[in-house]
Design a protein around this nucleic acid. Structure first.
Lengths: 190, 190, 190, 190
DNA sequence: GATGAATGAGATTTCATTCAT
DNA sequence: TATGAATGAAATCTCATTCAT
């Protein structure tokens, strides 16, 4: 009850996400979005005050969603090493199961000035990495580790999306986790 | 002595690079570029047929430049491990000394459809990685290694540019090289 | 009942016809057309994709209309001589009752490259003239006859329009019919 | 002596005539003309104050030339009937030997408002036709006769130019003269 | 809520003309 | 005389947003 609140609004967000992530913000017009939904331009403005509002709403819901995935990985408990793996897994999984959302995020952060929203998913990861670093379980500075992790995931995702990498997604996931572990955790002496 | 040949054309390319890399392609107008150069819009069109031609010319010259840097690193000789280091160094150096060009490339590849130009800088690196892999000196698939390398460099660059990372550039370079070596080269037993 | 469907589109076509026929295609701007209709330039583009689309739509509707007039003259039956007269009459009548359309056609065929549309009004007339020629009722080649007929009608129309000829339209029509009959039908001996 | 005065100016006029007659006034740019001549835009303005001045100069020289051809036909003497034939011949000959000039004239008179120049070639012909009419040797009003003559010649020319008529030029000339004679001169009663 | 015509600002591009060299 | 860069006005077209229905 009160659940079906604005079916259309969701459809608009869905359509907008698809188009923005594919074509970019400027090259996607309000008319494009309306056509994709099957309504007219004017109708969009019943649900959103502006095109930018759509972008902001997408940004914050996607950000929230990804943050929750990461939080889940952290909350599940286990050793630092296990959690590390789970976080990387969550990132890759998110990229591959919600490619449009993932692309949207990358696009947004590359194009728009520093985000107005506060709690970026990366912050959660960074907090965890800081922790690892303090315990001597991270072999480089946390910010650098974060860059290596997120940069690698994004690039793997793009390569796969564009068919530049032929390996299947599972292989990619395994290899990437293994590689990042090697890269970022200290060599276990005996 | 024929030196001042098309001073303006170069100024236009320079201004365009600055603006495109900062604001994106669509959000940079021809008028913006003209104003930056100190001429009028119309004058731009004496030097380029269209806005897109400016973008293409930038793309190809930047691509060429970066390719040359990488080629130099490869040509210098040395062991695979040394060359690997030199390539990563060349990438980081390029990002930090030509930040606008580096940003332009990333933006272009994210926004525009697959490039028509053939010889991407990445191809050179990939060829080298394939070689390493064949010799058992690379601990994951070459494409994945390429993704990790380029993704990490890009992300480090962005973090630094946005002041999200405070470490100085040399530290970043050293740490990144060390990390990528650990990540991608097999553990040397004994 | 669905009658007012796209009132504006018709007004645009009407205004465009008036301006194109008076000033030519290039010298008529979309702004001119918009002003004539009483809307803004942008509004034009809700009804047509481009200025050229307006021209093409006018061309095809005018061509169709004139073809129908000629077809009517042919279908009414009677001797070849009577039909010949009726065709010429139809042409003159069209020129004088729809001067803008007639001028548009002449302008288009003089300025634009050979039309892509197939069924030109002239083709109908030519078919009829071929028939007459085969029966020995035409005293010169059909193509030449067609040139004389259409060229004369056009020039009479222009002269009258520019007040270079003072005679009234009925006199012009009668005289032209008489003259073309003399010119193109064999002398009836005895 | 003083003969070679401004070779370039003539070349400009020649190039302009070619382009204007082919593409129209607006669609021919000053740069087009300059390129055709093999000079640059700026140089054009050494010889003419404006694009329109080129058009006007062409118009007046072509008009003069055609008027002279007609005058020659009139001056050669002979019976009215012979002169009539000579005038028509002169018009056809002009169209076929100077197609660009002929096309230019037609285009100009269709597109531009009533000419600023006074002595149109048609006026000469009209004077002659008035004379014939007064002597009972013309079977319709002179203005109408003029329209039929000039309209027919123009249309024959266009048809031939566009390959719509296959007959050779001589046939066209003969047939047209014969047809116009039939059309415009009274039946000779025994 | 929805439609779709219209606005109005602005983007890209064209081009006659000017001007420093 | 000639060059060709530059101007500045205008043309075509796009699009976020508004609004009457």
């Amino acid at each position: 009850m009160g659940e079906k609140r604005s079916d259309t609004k969701d459809k608009i967000l869905e359509a907008a996400l698809k188009l923005f992530s594919r074509k970019g913000f400027r090259e996607t017009t309000v008319k494009d979005i309306a056509k994709e939904v099957g309504i007219t331009e004017g109708a969009i403005y019943r649900h959103f005050h502006s095109k930018d509002e759509i972008i902001q709403e997408l940004l914050s819901s996607i950000t929230k969603e990804l943050r929750e995935e990461i939080q889940k990985a952290i909350d599940e408990g286990g050793s630092e090493e296990e959690t590390f793996t789970k976080i990387v897994e969550a990132l890759i999984r998110y990229a591959f199961t919600k490619p449009e959302s993932f692309r949207f995020l990358n696009l947004y952060h590359l194009l728009k000035d520093y985000p107005r929203i506060t709690h970026l998913p990366g912050e959660l990861v960074l907090k965890f990495l800081n922790n690892m670093y303090a315990k001597g379980k991270l072999s480089t500075h946390p910010e650098i580790a974060l860059a290596v992790i997120t940069g690698s995931v994004e690039r793997i995702f793009i390569f796969k999306e564009r068919n530049f990498i032929k390996h299947d997604k599972n292989t990619l996931k395994e290899q990437l986790i293994k590689t990042l572990q090697k890269a970022l955790t200290p060599k276990n002496p005996t």
